[in-house]
Amino acid sequence: MIDLQTVNANVFRVPFFRFLNFEVQSLDSLHAVAEMTFETRHIGNPVMDHYHGGIIASFMEATAAIAVHPDFTEVPAKPINLTVDYLRPGVKGPLYARANVTRKGRRIASVSVNSWQTDQEKTIAEGLYHFLLV
């Protein structure tokens, strides 16, 4: 299994992942957990300083892609589509995502992702992501 330091070095090489500014915290063959730092450029609602929904979806997609293919060299795993449910606003502060690979076949992977802030029980958003492995 690839070590965290190498994964985070890979993450840092991706321009959009630097834009998101997150770090992978733990990883095994079917899961990845990552933490994203709040940035002004992530704001969707400038009055309330909430995260933009698209940033939350992007961060969950990035975490899912790493769970599917942590040792990518050129580009992260190829996304096919996604659905996201937004359950609570994402407020100023760190955001966490946990991706679980529910099925990884030869061609397609399905990944479910959860995100939270201070309380892991209080989900901010959850999503289902498909990736093409060929």
Partner: peptide, 11 residues
Amino acid sequence: HGGILTALLDS
């Protein structure tokens, strides 16, 4: 990245 397209649609 796909995510920026998702963010664009949401906006």
